[in-house]
Every structure is written in C-alpha cells, then in structure tokens.
Amino acid sequence: MLLIAFDSTQQALRAEMLLEYADIENDMRPTPKEITAGCALSLEFPKEEYKRVKQIIEEERVEVRGIFFKKDDQYVNMDA
C-alpha cells in the first residue's frame, strides 16, 4: 500500500472523492507521525494504482505533500 500525505484537509477530501470516482480503492487514515505534513489525514491506496493515482493528482492539480511507501520502519517519498 502507498500513502498520499497532504498539507490541507480540503485537498485530502478532494483526492478521496477523485479516487472514488475513478473506482480506485482507498482508505482515509491519520498521517503517520514520521511524515511531516500540514494535514492530519492521509489516503492509502494499492501500489498497483500508483500510475493512475499520480495521473489523476497531476491532471486535477491536487496539492499533495508526497506519495510515500513504507520501507522497514520509515516512510520514503516516491518522488524523492
């Protein structure tokens, strides 16, 4: 599973709606303390959907802190 972190709750809720509309499974959850973000909410989604999610986020200009995956006990930014 991958995790999208946001700087605002508005962007998190907007992304959730867009992913649901695209029929991409997602779960809203608290942002892990290891990720510095301005919003306490993050979206988790299947790794296999990364390309589609990235495309939706870019096309719809959703403001995100980053898309992360968990490696050992740390979250790593996919775009870093």
Rank of each mutant, 00 (worst) to 15 (best):
M1K: 11
M1Q: 13
M1I: 14
M1E: 14
L2S: 12
L2T: 11
L3F: 13
L3S: 10
I4G: 00
I4C: 09
I4T: 15
I4R: 08
F6Q: 00
F6V: 02
F6Y: 04
F6M: 02
F6A: 00
D7G: 01
D7I: 00
T9S: 03
T9N: 02
Q10A: 13
Q11L: 01
A12C: 12
A12K: 11
A12M: 11
L13G: 03
L13T: 06
L13W: 05
R14K: 15
R14A: 00
A15L: 05
A15E: 01
E16I: 12
E16C: 13
L18A: 09
L19N: 04
Y21A: 07
A22M: 07
A22G: 06
A22E: 12
A22W: 07
D23H: 09
I24E: 02
I24A: 03
E25V: 13
M28E: 12
M28I: 15
R29C: 14
R29S: 14
R29I: 14
R29E: 15
P30M: 14
T31I: 07
T31W: 01
K33D: 08
E34Y: 06
E34F: 05
I35H: 06
I35L: 10
I35R: 06
I35E: 08
I35D: 04
I35V: 14
I35S: 05
A37F: 01
A37G: 03
G38P: 02
G38L: 02
G38E: 01
G38R: 04
C39R: 00
C39H: 00
C39E: 00
C39Q: 01
A40E: 14
A40K: 15
L41G: 03
L41D: 03
L41M: 15
L41S: 09
S42H: 13
S42G: 15
F45R: 09
F45M: 09
P46M: 12
P46A: 15
P46E: 13
P46R: 13
E48T: 11
E48S: 13
E49K: 15
E49V: 08
E49L: 06
E49M: 13
Y50D: 08
Y50T: 06
K51P: 02
K51C: 07
R52V: 04
V53M: 04
K54T: 06
Q55I: 05
Q55Y: 08
Q55H: 10
Q55F: 03
I56E: 00
I57H: 03
I57Q: 04
E58N: 10
E58C: 05
E59K: 11
E59D: 13
E60A: 14
R61H: 13
R61W: 09
E63P: 00
E63V: 15
V64W: 00
V64G: 00
R65Y: 02
R65V: 05
G66Y: 04
G66W: 04
G66Q: 08
I67K: 08
I67R: 05
I67N: 02
F68Y: 15
F68R: 12
F68K: 10
K70T: 12
K70F: 07
K70G: 06
K71V: 08
D73K: 12
Q74P: 02
Y75T: 08
Y75Q: 10
V76G: 04
V76F: 07
N77V: 04
M78S: 07
M78W: 07
M78V: 14
A80P: 03
A80Y: 05
